[in-house]
């Protein structure tokens, strides 16, 4: 009882055979070697497994692989361009916005999803944009600053 699904992962076409109700999270980690997506709660509450699905941020633990056929999936592995980190990634490094790092890829993807749709979010919109992500170390102020810095550059 397996299904074959083809989709675009970080700009490359991939094909995978898996149980049809297996989560995108588990397929990415176990079948495709993408380990930036983290299994936290696996109930859609912590955001550590966030990916961009056709440009929109979703928790990959809640998506069945059967729902991904023909779609575009972006993880942090796909954010860099020509060896250059994405401005968000750089900003997270500059601001020291990580502590243990488990939540970091999810936060960066949520911020990316937000800025794709709204390059100049207000502070409130930034907070809402990452409201689905939890950081148990409590690095929230630095995470907010890291995103805010990229937004300020967007404005200029």
């Amino acid at each position: 009882m397996e299904v074959n699904v083809s989709f675009n992962l970080n700009g490359k076409k991939v094909s995978v055979t898996a149980p049809p109700a297996k989560s995108l999270l588990r397929v990415l980690r176990e079948d495709l070697g993408i380990t930036s997506v983290k299994p936290g709660c696996e109930a859609g509450e912590c955001g550590a497994c966030s990916v961009l699905l056709d440009g929109q941020v979703v928790t990959s633990c809640l998506v069945m692989i059967s729902q991904v056929d023909g779609k575009n999936v972006i993880t942090v592995e796909g954010l860099q361009k020509d060896g250059e980190l994405d401005p968000l990634q750089k900003s997270f490094i500059d601001e020291g916005a990580t502590q243990c790092g488990y939540c970091t890829p999810g936060f960066i993807i949520s911020a990316k999803g937000l800025l794709n749709e709204n390059p100049n979010p207000t502070d409130e919109e930034i907070l809402e944009g990452v409201s689905g992500n939890i950081c148990r170390c409590g690095a929230y102020p630095r995470i907010f600053n890291a995103i805010k810095k990229v937004v300020k550059k967007n404005v200029i």
Binding site: G44, G47, S50, L53, Q56, V57, V58, T59, L62, V63, S110, G113, L114, E128, G129, S131, G132, N133
Partner: peptide, 9 residues
Amino acid sequence: IGSPQIQNL
């Protein structure tokens, strides 16, 4: 109802 992630699904 939920986070952006949930609203998108």
